[in-house]
Amino acid sequence: MDETGKELVLALYDYQEKSPREVTMKKGDILTLLNSTNKDWWKVEVNDRQGFVPAAYVKKL
């Protein structure tokens, strides 16, 4: 969790967005987890953008 109590995830792999609903991340990025109710796609925030990334590409910290 960060200082505001939000849950964080670590990008395990690079991911290039394939639609406007997704976000690009690089391996090693720390992202804010917004929603993990879907087992396949998690909603995150990175670089002031919100979108989805494959759940298998990130790990909760």
Rank of each mutant, 00 (worst) to 15 (best):
K27L: 05
E7L: 12
Q16Y: 15
G51Q: 02
V46C: 10
K39F: 08
W41Y: 07
E7Y: 11
M25P: 00
A56S: 14
K39Q: 12
Y57H: 06
L10H: 04
Y13W: 11
T37C: 11
V53K: 00
G51W: 03
N38D: 15
L31Q: 00
N35H: 07
V53L: 02
Q50V: 15
V46M: 15
E17T: 08
T24D: 04
L10I: 15
Y15A: 00
A56W: 08
L8Y: 15
L61G: 04
T4F: 14
K27S: 07
L61Y: 08
K6W: 11
T32V: 15
S36H: 09
D14A: 06
T24K: 03
T37W: 09
A56Y: 09
P20S: 11
W42N: 01
R49K: 11
P20G: 09
Q16N: 15
D14R: 03
G51P: 00
N47T: 08
D29K: 03
G51L: 04
D29G: 05
N38Y: 08
V9M: 05
N35V: 08
N47A: 12
V23H: 03
Q50C: 09
W41C: 06
E7T: 14
E7C: 13
G51V: 04
L10A: 06
T4W: 12
W42H: 02
K26P: 01
Y13N: 08
W41L: 03
E3K: 10
L10P: 00
M1Y: 14
E22S: 06
K39P: 15
D2S: 15
L31K: 00
V44Q: 00
T24L: 02
M25R: 00
A55D: 02
K39Y: 08
S19F: 06
K18M: 12
T24F: 04
L12Y: 03
D29L: 05
Q50D: 06
E22L: 04
V9S: 03
N47S: 10
L8E: 07
L61D: 03
E17H: 08
D48P: 05
L8T: 08
E3Y: 08
T24M: 04
K18T: 12
T24I: 03
D48R: 09
E45G: 08
L34G: 01
E17L: 07
V23D: 00
V46A: 15
K39H: 11
D40A: 10
D48L: 10
